[in-house]
């Protein structure tokens, strides 16, 4: 068996490897190269060194987008996970219609980001119109609009992951805790949460990276208005690349910085939550 696996290894790996190379590795390397170039179309680039990276430093909009994105991510990670976990707890108590509720909560996740963005723009503008305001009146409205939208979309998905985590907790552990006289809060803190730590790792990872990479919803909901004040990082990169003559390389450089940032945060986060996981 071992022998034949070795023999056929290239045959099995080749298709996937080819697809991965064409679809990921080549564009990725090309992207890094382009971030050191000046170009209009990606096929005729001129190497200019680190000039593009220097321009990022003097770009106020990028700095603003960075902290705006950070704030948005923190807020959405906290809200989505707390709410998703609470809903998951409720829906594992065996109340009537559990399946219906789970389906209903999960459904928003099946709708695409652009569509959701426009739907929520209409909804929120409809509410704000009562106060003679619109979503793009100031960046605070856009911020909370995005948070609400993302919660609505992602809670259901994270809930499913938490539910499976909670259901995997062996019944005897909870029972033992009860016999030992633990109150519900103590059970939650000392049994349930440590036991679902793997789910928490996955969910924080997903919400964290989703928050940082958010694009569609941002584009559809506010498109960065007013004055690019509600612009998240991904949208800022897109606008730099396509919106400014001669700034394609800068946009590309921003994308490289963005990649390093997201990769770094994701690695640190998984390390941190991993250490909290318990074996049983």
């Amino acid at each position: 068996m071992q022998h034949s696996l070795k023999k056929y290894f290239p045959v099995f790996v080749l298709p996937t490897l080819a697809a991965f190379t064409i679809g990921f590795i080549i564009p990725f390397l090309m992207g890094i190269y382009l971030s050191f170039c000046k170009f209009t179309t990606v096929t005729d680039a001129k190497f200019i060194g680190i000039g593009n990276y220097l321009k990022i430093l003097s770009d106020d909009a990028f700095g603003h987008a960075l902290w705006y994105t950070a704030a948005f991510t923190i807020m959405s990670v906290l809200l989505i996970n707390v709410l998703a976990f609470s809903v998951a707890m409720l829906l594992t108590k065996g109340i009537r219609g559990t399946n219906v509720f789970r389906t209903v909560f999960f459904m928003p996740n099946l709708i695409g980001g652009i569509v959701l963005g426009y739907v929520w723009q209409l909804l929120l503008n409809g509410v704000l119109a009562k106060f003679q305001k619109t979503l793009t009146y100031s960046s605070a409205y856009g911020f909370w609009g995005l948070v609400i939208l993302m919660c609505w979309q992602q809670i259901g998905y994270m809930m499913i992951i938490y539910i499976s985590g909670i259901q995997n907790i062996p019944g005897e552990l909870i029972e033992a805790a009860k016999i030992d006289g633990a109150r519900p809060v103590q059970i939650l803190r000392n049994v349930t949460i440590p036991m679902v730590m793997p789910s928490i790792t996955i969910c924080t990872f997903l919400t964290l990276t989703n928050g940082f990479k958010l694009f569609d919803q941002n584009l559809a909901l506010t498109n960065g208005e007013p004055s690019n004040m509600s612009e998240l990082l991904a949208l800022n990169i897109f606008n730099t690349f396509y919106g400014r003559t001669g700034y394609e390389g800068v946009g590309q450089a921003k994308a490289v910085v963005f990649f390093i940032l997201v990769a770094l945060i994701a690695v640190i986060q998984t390390r941190l939550t991993r250490t909290k996981e318990v074996q049983h």
Binding site: Y137, S138, E225, P226, S227, G243, T245
Partner: peptide
């Protein structure tokens, strides 16, 4: 000179109009 100039002026016009 650029689209960015227009966007910046547009945003400033809007904020002036809104009173922000």
């Amino acid at each position: 000179p650029s689209e960015d100039w227009k966007n910046a002026v547009g945003s400033a016009l809007l904020e002036y109009a809104q009173g922000t």
